[in-house]
Design a protein around this nucleic acid. Structure first.
Lengths: 320, 320
DNA sequence: CTGAAAGCGCTAACAG
DNA sequence: CTGTTAGCGCTTTCAG
């Protein structure tokens, strides 16, 4: 009987497992990565996390889940507490602001692999998995315009954020390129959350000349807009058309099946995980890469065609 | 100048943080808990996890997130790999089967605090946070009956699962109590997932005498049923009424705003976390407790009143 | 009351 | 090739 076997047998019998804590201390490895998202309750981030998990499931890395609630203070605290407990970080940063980024940069420089998801920090060089926000916004603008809309409003996401900024800029530029004015009262500030978008929609529809279409910069805000419209008993798309960036969970089953720009969130998470694992394996030198995923326009029923006459329908305008 | 101050200053300046890994090794603590759910992509579990997080956020415990995909093999593997890396486990077990429970019992007996969420393992004594499935099912049955329905079908969840079993049993008992027959062809097996419920709904509506109402035992299956009906171009609630257990994400905005039995999933997660923390603090002796959360009936528009005449509407039946 | 030392469980380096 | 040992960063204990 070889000693190797008897040892193996003993291991079996006693149910021995090396202590990962002791390993961690000795090797400086944690076999854990932090996944830091604004809110796991947002289906988009749930899918991202699922994508990360699908990759990590095979490997030795566990996922530590953290929510920032879009608070950059919380994000800083979370990062500070977690950085020493994980081997790498997958993060959707709350803001593009440089002050916030300094901390992250320090961690990265100190050797912690980092991958950004959906939002970048301009000027800082991290691996990241983005989505083609500009193309998505242009797709949305073109769709509305092709349907004959000219009184178009938008509820934008946080402008200190990559998708918030890019989606709004590309959308308004495109409109201006085709000669459509996007007046200030048609640009409402949102923060990617439902409640502000709800309020914004109420205000939009209370204008003397309400828009005939609204572009909402993310899924939660689209939900807020839809709820506001429903409370107002305003019909979609008969009275207003709605187009969103990102699908809603049961977007196809809504009273007005949602027309929107979509992308593969699970894939986005999976790619982020792969990039992180590559950094973790990384004997190679660091060479931050940016992946930009494509988007597509999902035409359902929440946007309708506007006849030229609607545009100057005095009766309609008086009725508001 | 006191030395305490200069030390504090030095700590500040150097950005020193005690290594939780070293602490862990010394103290035999991981400062991590495992949260094991079927699928984080299911909004119900996302909310449960959020509830857990809301409690743990203050404390020193991090959340390690794991998905079982309703596979009890995966669950076993996950548990085996994770038990030595965490201080406690919050779990929604895949099955009530005893064979699966043995492993869990061993871990518990070996000292790992465990809290079960939404599903118990009969005969095993763990802390758990359940929901009043029987009352929920009875609420659903009574609602349909009060609306005049008599041809009532159900898509049940996995019967090796607490909610699957309890919801079905209470529902069918209640129907039988009020003299309504629930024939085998009206009882379809689901597994809490969308696709099987989709198929089941197709079959249900293809029957010679299709039901006028369907009770679906969880949110994902309700989505599946709704999608099948939408594909079949069958109107809800005009042709069939739908009542679900658990709300859908935008349940109020659906073409047929969903009537359902609901509960507070975030609270369920938060309570589970509190129970786990109590065990972790626990100088006290173990004394497994079961918390049963109440449910409520959310009446929206996916169930309609059936006139007695509808029940024997020959024309309708021939038209199928 | 302050300061040194042992040891948590592991692995890598090194001696035999 | 096998066996011993040092030390990862911390806390607790014990000595000074």
């Amino acid at each position: 009987m070889r000693s190797g076997d008897s040892i193996r047998t003993a291991i079996e019998e006693l149910g021995y497992h090396p202590s990962s804590v002791a390993q961690g201390l000795r090797l400086g490895v944690h076999y854990a990565i932090a996944v830091v998202v604004p809110d796991i309750t947002n289906p988009f981030f749930a899918e991202v996390v699922r994508g990360v998990e699908s990759i990590c499931r095979k490997g030795p890395y566990q996922i530590i889940l953290l929510n920032t609630d879009e608070s950059s203070r919380d994000e800083n605290e979370i990062l500070r507490d977690i950085v020493q407990r994980v081997d790498g970080i997958i993060l959707t940063p709350t803001t593009e602001r440089q002050s916030s980024a300094e901390q992250l940069q320090r961690y990265y420089d100190a050797g912690t692999p980092i991958v950004l998801v959906d939002r970048v920090i301009p000027g800082k060089d991290f691996d990241c998995v983005l989505v083609d926000n500009k193309r998505g916004a242009i797709l949305a603008a073109d769709h509305l315009v092709s349907l004959g809309h000219r009184r178009i409003a938008t509820i934008r996401g946080s402008m200190t954020t990559t998708p918030g900024r890019e989606r709004f800029e590309a959308f308004s530029e495109r409109l201006s390129d085709v000669g459509i004015d996007l007046p200030p009262e048609y640009c409402r500030d949102g923060d990617f959350r439902e409640s502000k978008a709800y309020q914004a929609t109420l205000e939009l529809m209370a204008l003397a000349t309400p828009p005939t279409a609204i572009f909402s910069a993310n899924n939660l805000m689209t939900a807020g807009a839809l709820k506001a419209l429903s409370a107002l008993r305003i019909r979609v798309p008969e009275t207003v058309s709605i187009i969103g960036f990102d699908d809603l969970h049961l977007g196809e089953l809504l009273a007005a099946p949602l027309t929107c720009v979509t992308r593969d969130a699970v894939r986005q998470g999976a790619l982020a995980a792969r990039m992180l694992l590559a950094q973790l394996d990384g004997n190679v030198e660091r060479n931050p890469r940016t992946i930009v995923l494509d988007v597509s326009l999902l035409k359902r029923a929440s946007c309708r065609k506007v006849r030229p006459s609607d545009e100057h329908d005095e009766a309609f305008e008086r009725s508001m």
